[in-house]
Design a protein around this nucleic acid. Structure first.
Length: 118
RNA sequence: AGAGUGAGUUGGGCAGUUGCGGUUUGCUUUUUGCAAAACGAGGAAAGUCCGAGCUCCACACAGCAGGGUAACGGCUAACGGCCGCCGAGGGUGACCUUAGGGAAAGUGCAACAGAAAUAAACCGCCUGAUUUCAGGUAAGGAUGGAAAGGCGAGGUAAGAGCUCACCGGCGUGCAGGAGACUGCACGGCCAUGUAAACCCUACCCGGAGCAACAUCAACAGAAUUCAGGAAUACCUGAGCGCCAGCUGGGCGAAUAUUCGAAAGAUGGCUUGAGCCUUCGGGCAACUGAAGGCCUAGAUAGAUAAUUGCCUUAAAAGACAGAACUCGGCUUACAGACUCAGUCGCAAA
RNA sequence: GCUGCUAUGGCGCAGUCGGUAGCGCGCAUCCUUGGUAAGGAUGAGGUCACCGGUUCAAAUCCGGUUAGCAGCU
């Protein structure tokens, strides 16, 4: 299993916000777009509205753990860039809840198959 | 048992599964990848309010300007910090608070009210004159935060430190103390408040900050001047750039420097005024010796997710995330625990 | 991470060597007009971001807190 590759350029985030497909859930917002990098890359946004540094770090870790569960349990067609935006509820939720939310979002966007996500 | 005071500790633990960060070791070996091991956020990491180390700017210089501190003695690398102690204020008490030099060097300000605000006569009182006034007087009234030291007695035409006792303040002398200061005696009777207003006195401070700075890579542009003497090299004068503000003074010039543009890699980056234990010195802050230990170094940013058990009356919950590093201060903080004083009540 | 600046009526701003806080636009009422706009008159609206200190007295001086904004490779 390969570790995640993170997005760190502001232009990558802007590209997903303007060009990518999006799906909003109460716990997390997902943006997705295809890339040519050969791997799947993710970026996590935690704004100052979430809270102080501890709460932002907490949200980031929960999303990262949820993404690792989704990436392990599902087959992703092609290479995509993802941006996950934390919301106010994220820091109070378990990572399993957030993982279900991400999986549902990716199904709606047609990135993963319905069958494999049991 | 109750109320209250001070000081300190802690800030969940254990195990399983899936994962993360740099380090070390081994295998593979151009990078890289794989495996194993131990380690991996705080008491405030926060605010950035002080003080230092470190780096660059003349290994940093002088004067002015500017800023800071403020009883006294000590501790410290240093400090605006800490300890002790003095004065003042508060509390029945344990104890707490305290930017606490100088207003007799000078200047400014003191609104409104009040007759008058640093200088005195509005009412009143007394004397002369006789209803216009002149003089004396700070006892009493009224205003104010503050009204000419307070209060009592003598004294006087009425009054007044005019005189006296006590208290307060100032000065001098003596005694005690390391000193601030305290106690006693004597003297004269004067001094509003404000210095977190300017200021004076004493002491301290050069500037900027790890996004500093160094090396490598990359880079399209601009500037590096003029005069005189001389030998292209040097000297003199002016200019330019840098040296936190001004003045002096200093430094600089072609594989170099400065400005601009671009923003990438590596170092700086963790062994340090370090931590623990024992013994010694000191009332204490702190310090000396011996022994032991190595305890985060990321660069969009690593400590997570999930399950079970323990602790708890119950629920793992408060405040909160290192970013060059230390010493403090301030602010935020659920719960739990320890120690030492105090007060009144009851009982013995 | 570091360095600065700001907070005053609904909005934009004065006032900061202390002495009872104002201006413009906006708002309300009245006048003017057949009616409206413009104009004129009157009025309301303020914990001077918050907490403490100095002072007789603080928007102002001093310390702390909160929020917002700007700059630095």
């Amino acid at each position: 299993m390969q570790r995640y590759v993170s997005l760190n350029q502001n232009k990558d985030f802007l590209r997903l916000y303007y060009r990518g497909k999006s799906c909003a859930k109460p716990s997390v917002v997902v943006y997705a777009a295809k890339n040519r990098a050969g791997v799947c890359r993710i970026g996590i946004t935690t704004s100052k509205k979430i809270g102080n540094a501890v709460e932002r770090n907490r949200s980031r870790r929960i999303i990262k753990a949820a993404w690792q569960n989704v990436f392990r349990d599902n087959q992703i067609k092609g290479n995509w860039d993802f941006v996950f935006v934390a919301r106010n509820k994220t820091k109070f939720q378990k990572s399993t809840v957030v993982a279900n939310a991400i999986a549902d979002s990716l199904k709606e966007l047609g990135i993963i198959d319905e069958k494999r996500s049991d």
